[in-house]
Design a protein around this nucleic acid. Structure first.
Length: 487
DNA sequence: TTTTGAGTTGTTCGA
DNA sequence: GTCGAACAACTCAAA
């Protein structure tokens, strides 16, 4: 029997900086497997994520083929498929990159035991994080709950290991007829929408895959990183890295980002200063912190981290939720964000905070509804980041914003989109308003509205809730929650 | 054990 | 128009 291996691709859809893949390929002919798991206990992917996954798998298949390998696709429950394939193929070594949500951890542990018992060697690796969630602790060994000490502790561990290159060549394992019969064609995965095809905006906005991710990083480092500290808050301009969906699917890893950023600064290749770089890397740090929180709080996406919020008087308001989802709240920066999301599968970070704060605080709608909407519509929907960030805005999360921090969508709009560039891009029906009215069209007099071709309540909605009223109501509810006895 | 310093991203009000 | 204070204490992490 010749040495052979299987690498199980999941959220590590890349060849470079992929130690699990390297271990398999170094062992012998390798079966590169992706299993689409739609019926298990794991949270189903949202629509936008399915689209991204589809394209990413295509890119991965092409990259593997260029090296002599082959991406094998199957569909079903990995708990059944993987042991079956491993046995039939007679592979000696099975590798994968670790995942950190509770259901995946449970599944992977079960599989490790089962496959090992059946005689295969199983090796798991870290491809997704600078530090494993259990590696950063307080002096007493407890998980961290505050970002700054977390990130300080993580940084004190020194630089992460340098990324390893992609394998030069990958020898594909010949499939037996029984295994070949289990495979499915890419089109049969049916990951992309057809009727209706709503993915046009996604196709125009994104190029999934490892190669595109590397290009995007390079472009970001060469220009937008300079001034990132300020520019990252301007949704009207391209000042963020937009790497989030690539990171989500593991087309690029944080080690690669870390080292590329460092060397771009040190070589002078990037004009940015080290403080912009530090700011950018700390955003990678927030991703790490979110994974740390998720690992230690498996129900982060469904349960208040701070149990005091269990008694919070959320409003049930289907109409308001729908208006928010469609970008029809009457507050331009909020609506622009939700329309950007709906069209492109992505929303600028500053606007995510404004939109989330508006849903939670001004509309008093449970953060889980917002989390679920983002999960379905974001191409970067991430089990850790999405949950941790929504809880952060709600105030129920770790190191969360204080309850009295309620974003005013007008103030935020004027501050971060002063010329209305972003709002006009996504809400063309009010684009004719002057800059000083673009964030509060209800203040325009009748001639200004007429000149801009706006009929409030018809071409663009009246504000769905009055800002002072919403703010007061939220402060009262939050004050009550704060003093509530947690159990 | 106790103490101490610190903590992503805001808004409003009044001087 | 600008600026500091109040918002309200609370929890975390380390010394």
């Amino acid at each position: 029997m010749t040495a052979s291996a299987l690498h199980w691709f999941r959220d590590d859809l890349r060849l470079a900086d992929n130690p699990a893949l390297a271990a398999a390929v170094g062992h012998g002919p390798t079966l590169c497997l992706y299993i689409l798991d739609e019926g298990g206990s794991r949270r189903p992917l949202g629509g936008a994520s399915r689209w991204w996954l589809s394209r990413s798998l295509k890119a991965l298949a092409a990259a593997l083929a260029a090296k002599g390998g082959e991406l094998v696709l199957m569909r079903g429950d990995p708990a059944e498929i993987l042991p079956w394939v491993v046995e039939r193929a007679g592979v000696e070594l099975v590798t994968w990159s670790r995942r950190y949500d509770a259901e995946s951890v449970a599944l992977d542990s079960r599989l490790k035991i089962e496959l090992s018992a059946a005689g295969a060697k199983v090796a798991s690796f870290n491809a997704a994080l600078l530090n494993e969630p259990w590696q950063v602790t307080t002096k007493t060994g407890d998980p961290m709950k505050v970002f700054t000490p977390y990130w300080r502790a993580a940084r004190s561990k020194g630089d992460p290991p340098a990324p390893i290159p992609a394998p030069d060549r990958i020898e594909a394992l010949r499939l037996s007829p029984a295994i070949a019969a289990m495979t499915v064609a890419h089109a049969d995965l049916a990951l992309e929408p057809s009727k209706p095809d709503w993915a046009g905006g996604l196709r125009e906005s994104w190029a999934p895959g490892e190669e595109a991710a590397a290009e995007r990083l390079g472009e970001f480092l060469s220009d937008p990183l300079d001034g990132y500290g300020e520019g990252r808050d301007r949704p009207g301009q391209v000042s963020t890295s937009r790497l989030s969906p690539h990171l989500r699917f593991g087309e690029i890893g944080p080690r690669q980002i870390w080292h590329a950023t460092r060397s771009a600064i040190e070589s002078g290749e990037a004009s940015a200063g080290s403080s912009d770089a530090e700011k950018f890397l700390s955003e990678i740090g927030w991703r790490e912190f979110s994974y740390h929180l998720l690992f230690h709080n498996p129900d982060l996406a469904t349960r208040n981290y701070n149990p005091r919020f269990d008694a919070f008087p959320w409003q049930r308001d289907e109409a308001a939720l729908k208006a928010w989802q469609r970008g029809l709240t009457g507050y331009p920066i909020v609506d622009a964000g939700l329309r950007e999301l709906w069209t492109t599968g992505w929303m600028h970070n500053r606007v995510r905070m404004i939109a989330a704060s508006f849903l939670i605080k001004h509309l008093l709608i449970d953060w889980r509804h917002g989390e679920a909407w983002f999960w379905d519509t974001l191409v970067d929907a991430d089990p850790a980041n999405n949950a941790a960030s929504w809880q952060w805005v709600a105030g129920s999360g770790a190191d969360a914003s204080p309850y009295y921090r309620i974003f005013n969508p007008v103030t935020q709009g004027l501050k971060f989109d002063p010329k209305g560039t972003y709002v006009r891009r996504w809400i063309p029906e009010i684009a004719g308003l002057d800059d000083d009215l673009i964030h509060e069209p209800w203040k325009a007099n009748s001639s200004a509205l007429h000149d801009a071709g706006i009929v409030l309540g018809e071409t663009y909605p009246h504000p769905i809730v009055e800002l002072d009223f919403g703010r007061r109501r939220a402060l009262d509810a939050l004050a009550a929650t704060r003093s509530a006895d947690p159990e």
